[in-house]
Design a protein around this nucleic acid. Structure first.
Length: 895
RNA sequence: GGGCGAAUAGCUCAGCUGGUUCAGAGCGCCUGCCUUACACGCAGGAAGUCGGGGGUUCGAAUCCCUCUUCGCCCACCA
């Protein structure tokens, strides 16, 4: 205890030093040997790897705080706890960042060429890549940094290739020519999940397509008129009476002047629009399928950056898709073929990285066949292997798996894992080789080969992380010990990108789910319930909070503000409102610790592992027994709350114990024993230390820094002791003490009653009053705690029994004990009558409704006996209190 | 268009298996206190028809139905 104990806790003075000390000691690196087979399975959490270029935001703050609370809890419970961190190369996101930097220099990636560009990304990533991991340390994350991975590391890249080759060999990876989601800005294909559907207000254009023979026209409705440049048919439903005779006839496609047929297809909904659909196989997934069924040509009228291609009439070529839309509509209008335009709200896909409207595009891509992978993953949910917290998220998971479509995994990017496929360039051979190793020549003909230009979807490496980060495909010791893990902590929007895919990959490659608990927390939002985001400018920088209020305050606010599965609302305009409670609590702890530690200079008892071992039971005062019982109850409640992922409740329970019980009552109660030579000082010191110690340990997962600082300063700690690996407090049957809880509760009530009377009549704080306490069930206890009552309620003399005086403040305890504070002329009798009258009325209402309840035959006969008994006790208690106050009113001569 | 969630004090939210936490916490507000751990504190206080309506039950903030208002997810009616 050599550190200066300033009265105000200063987090920045200790946090980084404590963190460095933890890390140096390797407290977060579980030993593989120490958790050898036969011992309890280790507890493993895979950290959702942040993007390598990311800067810490509140979403990371919440996600990682939750994980840290869980991992610290399990570590203290004595399990080998591994929290495995890493970073994600984040293909599109990272490439975009670097391309933006290039753009500032007036360059594009094409100016550099592939090799130079990738090098440039690497150097960028090496510069910034560790920033977020450093930031996670600043908020106290106890991850095992010695095992940090990067998804483009050699090891993980090997895993990516291995999995690709295996899936290919199993027929689960294939190359196909389909409509995919295409981002015209990022110039790459996207998976369905990466194309975010968003409702937008658009229009429905009703266009007339004339029959080739000039005998009339058919009207089609479309939300994207520009695609008509690539129309190759119009489809109607085969049973649609209106068009029965039209099927098979030819239309003259306006604008492009091409003949296209009318075909019949079941996919058409006769009830929508005109019941006739223009068919653009190259630009719409549904149309593509219609095209296949009817053997229609596909005309791709757009370039990769969504301009009109050479396949369209010259006057449209080069136009942006939205310019082309206007131009097409204008031509229809000019030709009198625009029937009408109506407003139409519909869902449009947007690139999840740059928010550009996605263009459905026909191209050759690599896919993973998902149905066979989804089946066991669905089974694992249905048979109860998986637990979702909150439960309802399991339904989202199951629904997605049931409707799963094949996964487009190729990306036309340069940053990522190059697809391990080589094409032979030799004419007549043309072999496609899928290989774990780089190929220089064709294995069949020895000719020149060319590797596929594309890279894999970022998530194709992340879905392997639960085992690839442990060394797979090698059978490493880490893999044997730490797979499978237990809990995955993520946000609901990541379920489809990552959570379910890891489950599928784990089952497929490892034969076991990578985790069984899936904890899905909410989103961090502002007070208008908008998601915090850079673009909205409503974010809060976690590091600024750490700076101003400390990491513990940040963590406390995030945890305390979050019930299972609900969002966390923070006010970017008022950091004080959001984070002061945590800061204040840390300061409270600091000062409670300071007080206890600075009062150890008297006799004390040795610390022991268990609170009731410290002293003999008969030496304990009522207050000692009470705080010990409260402490034990807190241990039970907090432990259960942590186990059930009710982290906010765990925080609240410990907060109440430390602040309301320990600081407000127990510490106040023992002060005389500590200051003077009054007996029991040694016992009080021992109990205070012991219960505070328990409180610190219970709180450590949520507020690691301040608890560690205080815990280490306790006398007698070995220099290398850390609360982060201190044993988790266990319940103690001997601490249970209902009498102490009830009796000290009455002491608290009495003090509160006298204080309220003092405040009501404006008695100066320095002025002592007398108090008269009548006979009640706890008379003995109150008598024994006279000194406590006198001190805390500023009572000069506490009398027991009757008194002839009647003018003063009156009250009653819940057991019916009358309380009287003689105040003579200091009070106005009428006011006191009114005060008591209100109280009698309140009790009267309670009594009346309670009497009705107990008079109800149905209640008495149907409610459980113990409930009826409790209700009877309540009634008699209220009657008793009402009687006491009514008599007091009589004595005062109230009307 | 389908599915899910939320609505409790001025604000942010707890309230789990219907009844001893049952109407709570923190912030804010009002009153009084720099009482020798803490003014980031202490003590006392005001403040709510538990969104509306209906139902089940001896008993509902809690379970069911319905309406209203917000939010989220999914969706190839062009």
């Amino acid at each position: 205890m050599t550190e200066p104990l300033a009265p105000q806790y200063n987090p920045s003075a200790i946090e980084s030093a404590l963190y460095a000390w933890w890390e140096e000691r390797g407290l977060f690196s579980p030993d593989v040997a120490a958790s050898a087979p036969g011992k309890r399975r280790p507890y493993v959490i895979m950290m959702p790897p942040p993007n390598v270029t990311a800067a810490l935001h509140m979403g990371h703050g919440l996600n990682n705080t939750v994980q840290d609370v869980l991992i610290r809890f399990e570590r203290m419970r004595g399990r080998a706890a591994l929290w495995l961190p890493g970073t994600d190369h984040a293909g599109i996101a990272t490439q975009n960042v670097v391309e933006r930097a290039l753009a500032a220099e007036g360059l594009t990636r094409f100016d550099l060429g592939r090799e130079a560009f990738v090098e440039r990304v690497w150097s960028y990533v090496q510069e910034t890549g560790v920033a977020i991991l450093t930031q996670l340390r600043a908020i106290g994350c106890s991850a095992d940094w010695s095992r940090t991975y990067f998804t483009l590391d050699e090891g993980l890249s090997r895993a990516v290739r291995e999995s690709f080759v295996r899936l290919y060999d199993e027929g689960l990876v294939y190359r196909g020519h389909y409509i995919i989601n295409w981002c015209p800005r990022c110039l790459t294909a996207l998976s369905n999940e990466e194309a975010e559907k968003e409702e937008v207000d658009g229009h429905l254009w009703h266009l007339r397509y004339p029959l080739a023979d000039g005998s009339g026209h058919i009207t089609v409705a479309t939300t994207r008129p520009e695609t008509m440049l690539g129309d190759t048919a119009v489809a109607v439903h085969p049973d649609d009476e209106r068009y029965r005779d039209w099927i098979g006839r030819q239309l003259r496609l306006p604008v492009v002047d091409r003949l296209i047929p009318i075909v019949a297809d079941e996919a058409v909904d006769p009830a929508f629009g005109s019941g006739a659909v223009k068919v653009t196989p190259a630009h719409d997934p549904a149309d593509f399928e219609i095209g296949q069924r009817h053997d229609l040509p596909s005309i791709d009228v757009m370039t990769p950056d969504a301009r009109i291609s050479l396949a369209a009439p010259e006057r449209f070529q080069g136009l942006d898709r939205f310019e082309a839309r206007r131009a097409v509509v204008a031509e229809f209008e000019a030709a009198g073929l625009l029937e009408r335009i109506e407003p139409h709200r519909h869902a449009v896909g947007h690139c999840y990285r740059c928010h550009t409207i996605v263009e459905p595009r026909l191209s050759d891509q690599w896919f993973v066949r998902m149905a066979p992978l989804a089946k066991p993953a669905l089974e694992a949910y249905r048979d109860g292997t998986l637990t979702f917290i909150p439960e309802r998220r399991g339904d989202d998971y199951a629904a997605w798996l049931e409707g799963i479509r094949d996964w487009c995994i190729s990306r036309q990017l340069w940053w990522g894992h190059r697809i391990p496929v080589w094409y032979c360039l030799t004419e007549g051979c043309g072999l496609t080789s899928v290989s774990r190793n780089d190929l220089a020549t064709c294995p069949a003909c020895g000719g020149e080969v060319r590797q596929d230009d594309d890279v894999l979807d970022t998530w194709f490496s992340s879905w392997l992380v639960p085992f690839s980060s442990l060394g797979w495909p090698d059978q490493t010791a880490d893999l044997a010990r730490f797979y499978p893990g237990h809990t995955l902590v993520s946000a609901p929007e990541i379920i489809f990108f990552w959570v379910s895919r890891m489950l599928m990959a784990g089952l497929h490659f490892m034969g076991e789910v990578p985790y069984t608990n899936i904890y899905l927390h909410g989103t961090v939002r502002d007070t208008l319930h908008r998601k915090m985001s850079k673009s909205l400018g409503n974010g809060i920088d976690p590091l600024e909070v750490v700076d101003k209020y400390g990491a513990d305050a940040l963590r406390y606010s995030l945890i305390a503000g979050m019930a299972v599965g609900t969002d966390v609302i923070l006010d970017p305009g008022d950091l004080e409102a959001s984070f002061a409670p945590g800061r204040n609590f840390a300061n409270k702890l600091w000062n409670a610790g300071r007080f206890i530690l600075s009062n150890l200079n008297g006799p004390t008892r040795p610390l022991a592992g268990d609170q009731t071992d410290v002293v003999r039971r008969e030496e304990l005062s009522l207050a000692d027994r009470w705080i010990i019982a409260r402490c034990d109850a807190t241990v039970r409640e907090a432990t259960e709350a942590y186990e059930r992922f009710r982290l906010n409740e765990a925080a609240a329970v410990v907060y109440r114990f430390i602040w309301s019980d320990l600081a407000d009552w127990y510490i106040e109660q023992i002060k005389p024993r500590l200051y003077g030579d009054q007996p029991g000082g040694d016992v009080a010191r021992a109990v205070a230390i012991q219960t505070f110690d328990v409180g610190l340990r219970l709180l450590h997962p949520v507020m690691p820094f301040v608890t560690e600082a205080l815990w280490r300063w306790f006398p007698g700690r070995p220099a290398d002791a850390s609360v982060s690996v201190a044993p988790w407090p266990g319940p103690d049957a001997r601490a249970t003490d209902a009498d102490a809880l009830r009796e000290f509760g009455l002491v608290q009530e009495l003090v509160g009653t006298v204080r309220a009377i003092r405040a009501e009549y404006g008695i100066q704080p320095g002025h002592a009053v007398r108090a008269v306490v009548g006979n009640g069930s706890a008379a003995d206890a109150l008598r024994r705690e006279q000194a406590t009552i006198a001190r805390l309620a500023k009572v000069s003399s506490l009398q027991f029994g009757e008194t002839a005086e009647r003018v003063g403040g009156h009250g009653v305890l819940s057991d019916g004990t009358p309380v009287f504070v003689p105040l003579g002329d200091a009070i106005d009798v009428a006011r006191e009558c009114q005060r008591l009258g209100a109280e009698v009325n309140r009790l009267d209402q309670l009594v009346t409704s309670q009497e009705r309840k107990l008079a109800n035959e149905q209640f008495v006969s149907r409610a459980p006996a113990d409930v009826v008994e409790r209700e009877r006790e309540k009634l008699s208690s209220w009657r008793e209190q009402r009687g006491v106050l009514a008599r007091k009113r009589e004595m005062l001569g109230c009307q």
